[in-house]
């Protein structure tokens, strides 16, 4: 509005323009220019991220949603089959249930153990010792190696029939077995590998512990509180937001585990599908059996399951997570 008026003014009353009018008009023009140019610049800078979000995440996600209702073998065009894939999954695919079983076992056992270990070590490292940084780094190290294929290969050797672990048991006169090739123990070697990589939650716990107020502990010390009570009555309640954060992240991570299961079982998910973690099964269906439509359906079920777990987590958190505000 102001713009139009001053422009009109410029034409009709050019003769009677005062210096102050002129200044006003210049300022207006500058502000306008700034607003117009500035309006697009942020989006330009965000563009790479938006392209990534839409091109590499949202579009493929929607595409996979479509494919999950089709029969698609990667090589010939997809055929619409309605909910057949989902139907087949729940009614006539025993391997699907094997993989659900293996994955749930993996998540339910590995996440609490990993977090307990992470918290325990974080408490040990939360003190002022000489060279404490070195210790922290040392405990974090396995997590740096964690996702690597190499470490999974080492794991396969360590827990194989003639591996280091059996040599170790041999010192105590215990006859070992091939832990990787037995359907009753294979999944636990994977769980152990996951638990060993406790570095990331440990660092987060450590950061949380460092923020806890000293005065509460001082008061507790004066009252003669035992270390156990101190942990359960002070440390843990104050730390619940951190615990919650770690639980959510670790559960999601655990559900998506692929590399160790793939490498340790040599891509087979064996023995007897005991290490057929969900992501591995999904990969096998898609890229080995060429059932990309079915694999997409599997992916969406995983999406819903993880979303469900996370939602339950958030709802439950109202009852046990203590925020100090």
């Amino acid at each position: 509005m102001t713009v139009a008026k001053s422009d009109a003014g410029a034409g009709e009353q050019a003769a009677s323009v005062t210096p102050s009018d002129q200044r006003e008009r210049d300022r207006m023009r500058r502000r306008l220019a700034r607003r117009r140019g500035g309006g697009w610049w942020p989006y330009a800078f965000l563009a790479p991220w938006f392209i990534g979000l839409f091109g590499l995440t949202i579009y493929p996600m929607l595409d996979s949603l479509y494919l999950s209702f089709t029969d698609f073998d990667l090589l010939t065009p997809a055929q619409w089959v309605g909910v057949d894939n989902y139907d087949k999954m729940f009614t006539e695919d025993p391997v699907f249930w094997d993989s659900v079983h293996a994955t749930l076992l993996y998540v339910v056992v590995s996440v609490p153990l990993k977090l307990a270990l992470a918290l325990g070590v974080a408490m040990l490292l939360n003190r002022d010792l000489r060279g404490i940084g070195l210790y922290r780094a040392a405990f974090y190290l396995p997590s740096l190696l964690g996702g690597a294929v190499a470490i999974a290969i080492v794991w396969r050797q360590v827990f194989g029939g003639d591996g280091l672990f059996n040599d170790f048991l041999g010192w105590f006169g215990i006859a070992g077995q091939d832990w990787i090739s037995s359907p009753d123990t294979a999944i636990y070697t994977l769980i152990l590998l996951a638990v060993w990589q406790f570095g990331t939650p440990m660092v987060i716990f450590l950061a949380g512990l460092k923020q806890l107020p000293k005065d509460v502990y001082e008061a507790a010390a004066i009252d003669g509180v035992t270390p156990v009570t101190r942990f359960f009555r002070i440390t843990l309640p104050l730390l619940t937001p951190i615990v919650f954060f770690n639980v959510v992240l670790q559960i999601i991570d655990a559900f998506k585990t692929f590399t160790p299961a793939f490498v340790i079982s040599n891509g087979s998910g064996g023995p007897l599908n005991s290490t057929m973690l969900y992501s591995l099964y999904l990969y096998k269906k898609g890229f080995t059996d060429l059932q990309m439509g079915y694999a997409s359906a599997l992916a969406w079920v995983l999406f819903l399951v993880i979303a469900g777990f996370t939602a339950v987590n958030f709802i439950a958190s109202r009852y046990w997570v203590h925020y100090d505000d």
């Binding site: 493929p60 996600m61 595409d63 996979s64 969406w300």
Partner: peptide, 9 residues
């Protein structure tokens, strides 16, 4: 979730 879904397309 995004990565696990979009990996399958």
């Amino acid at each position: 979730l995004g990565t696990s879904l979009s990996a399958c397309s």
